[in-house]
Design a protein around this nucleic acid. Structure first.
Length: 146
DNA sequence: GGCCCTTTGAAGCTG
DNA sequence: CAGCTTCAAAGGGCC
């Protein structure tokens, strides 16, 4: 049973139009549910929207040391082993990063500093879309079970 | 077309 | 404060 059918069964939804009588509490619950679902849709759409280029001032996270290492060594592994799949390449590079970690950590720190200068006040919080969604779910469940 | 996989690490949130 | 979650990159694979 889906959460929607569960909610409807709990609230004895009047499928027959002639029986369309709901209490004030039920209408308030329905309004809250609608509002909450709209919020859920809007917030969860951010994740998809932010990946679209040229829409909004989305600022990406600065790359960490391993990400810089991946960018640097990806083509080498592709040519060396003839692998195109990034998941497989990443596995190989995770083994090779050991002796170059400190070098790329220093570079990552520079990247982070430049990112901070170019984007004053920016925080990872701006990219944490699902936390917003997570705040919506409990209230949705609260409406469903009230 | 869009999500998943796969990795490390930074940063934020939760209990 | 420990533990969990997300997202940075990338491109093949899959639905």
């Amino acid at each position: 049973m889906s959460w929607m059918s569960y909610w409807l069964s709990c609230h004895q939804w009047p499928w027959n139009p002639s029986q369309f009588q709901i209490t004030l509490d039920q209408s308030v619950s329905l309004l809250s549910l609608s509002t909450t679902l709209c919020s859920l849709f809007v917030f969860c759409s951010f994740r998809k929207r932010k990946r679209e280029e040229g829409k909004g001032p989305y600022v990406k996270k600065p790359p960490n040391a391993f990400m810089l290492f991946l960018k640097s060594e990806r083509k080498t592994v592709q040519e060396e082993l003839g692998i195109r799949n990034s998941a497989a390449i990443n596995k190989v590079l995770s083994e090779r990063v050991q002796n170059k970690r400190e070098l790329f950590q220093a570079e990552a720190q520079i990247e982070a500093d430049i990112h901070a200068l170019n984007n004053p006040g920016w925080s990872n919080k701006a990219n944490y879309v699902s936390l917003l969604c997570r705040n919506v779910y409990p209230s949705t469940l609260e409406v469903m079970t009230s």
